[in-house]
């Protein structure tokens, strides 16, 4: 009889307190995952505290909050009288994002409807891959397109002296935001059970009636979330806007005017602002402001998505 066969059952009972390698691996992984999870939260809180510490003191200190938000004069490096008003920057960001959404919303919803409701088989898969590829284009490349292609195009088409401004950066930003909005909107359409479409078609609804009367209302929350996340993307975008907007401080009166965005201001100036100076702290205050806005937008998107399950 071979020696390694058939341990008597009593032997296993005695083994109960033995911890094998698996046990240690399991414990180690649990600890690592816990540390990983906690550190993400700690890091985010840490960043928030750091930014707040650097920025908040400024608004309540040397500068009036009111003036900070309502003065259009951003002259942080003026020798005689430095002023820190972000109104023009806010208007810049808002106008570029607004135009971007005017372009991106119809494009992305249209694309999502086409991919989700009309295209089939190979066409559909190809389009989805293409949209994902578009989403992966680095923003500096978009900025480059704004500078090198859109700029001369706008100058020539509209006969204006400069092609960098709201129009240029709005289009660029719209094109940038559209792919991710398309993807999210398409997910929202896909989440609508096919039984609804079948039911409506069996009642004699045409394709478009099915989409407008059944699919859109059912996917409403997801579609709204897609738009909100697009807005968030527009607000936060820096490099492409910096390159395509002209970056001059302006309360714009037409779409051809140059503007400067909040994000681009931070990116362009933080490196030169002496640490701890008013300028430095004003830029951090802008950072907090952006942080709060994107936070609120994302929160809204989240609530809107969850809102779908509320009434039912």
């Amino acid at each position: 009889m071979p020696a390694d066969v058939g341990q008597p059952p009593t032997k296993t009972a005695m083994d109960l307190d033995v911890r094998g390698q698996d046990w240690y691996v399991d414990k180690l992984v649990s600890v690592l995952v816990f540390v990983g999870g906690i550190s993400a939260v700690v890091l985010i809180l840490g960043i928030f505290v750091f930014i707040t510490k650097e920025g908040v003191g400024f608004v309540f200190g040397p500068m009036e909050v009111w003036e900070f938000f309502t003065s259009p004069f951003w002259r942080p490096t003026s020798r005689t009288e430095a002023t820190y008003g972000i109104l023009a920057l806010m208007v810049g960001t808002a106008s570029v994002t607004g135009l971007a959404m005017l372009i991106a919303v119809p494009f992305s919803l249209g694309a999502a409807v086409f991919i989700g409701e009309f295209a089939t088989g190979r066409t559909r898969e190809t389009l989805k891959v293409l949209v994902e590829l578009l989403a992966a284009i680095p923003s500096v490349v978009w900025g480059f397109i704004g500078l090198a292609i859109m700029n001369p195009l706008i100058i020539e088409t509209f006969d204006v002296p400069i092609g960098l401004g709201i129009l240029n950066s709005g289009i660029i930003l719209g094109l940038m935001a559209a792919p991710i909005m398309t993807t999210i909107a398409e997910d929202a359409l896909k989440a609508v059970p096919d039984g609804y479409r079948e039911a409506a078609e069996a009642m004699g609804a045409t394709k478009w009636q099915v989409i407008s009367k059944v699919v859109f209302p059912a996917a409403k929350n997801g579609l709204m979330a897609a738009v909100l996340l697009g807005v968030g993307r527009g607000f936060g975008e820096t490099m492409a806007v910096l390159m395509a907007s002209g970056h001059s401080i302006n309360l714009p009166t037409s779409v051809f005017d140059s503007v400067r965005a909040l994000t681009a201001t931070i990116a362009a100036e933080l490196g030169e602002a002496p640490v701890g100076s008013d300028h430095y702290r004003a830029l951090f205050t802008i950072g907090i402001f952006l942080f709060l806005i994107t936070f609120v937008i994302n929160l809204m998107a989240d609530i809107v998505i969850r809102g779908g399950g509320r009434k039912r």
Binding site: G195, Y196, A199, A202, A218
Partner: peptide, 13 residues
């Protein structure tokens, strides 16, 4: 020609 399905399928309205 109307149709009634195996699983009730009212619209989400």
């Amino acid at each position: 020609v109307g149709m009634v399905f195996q699983r009730p399928n009212p619209l989400p309205l």
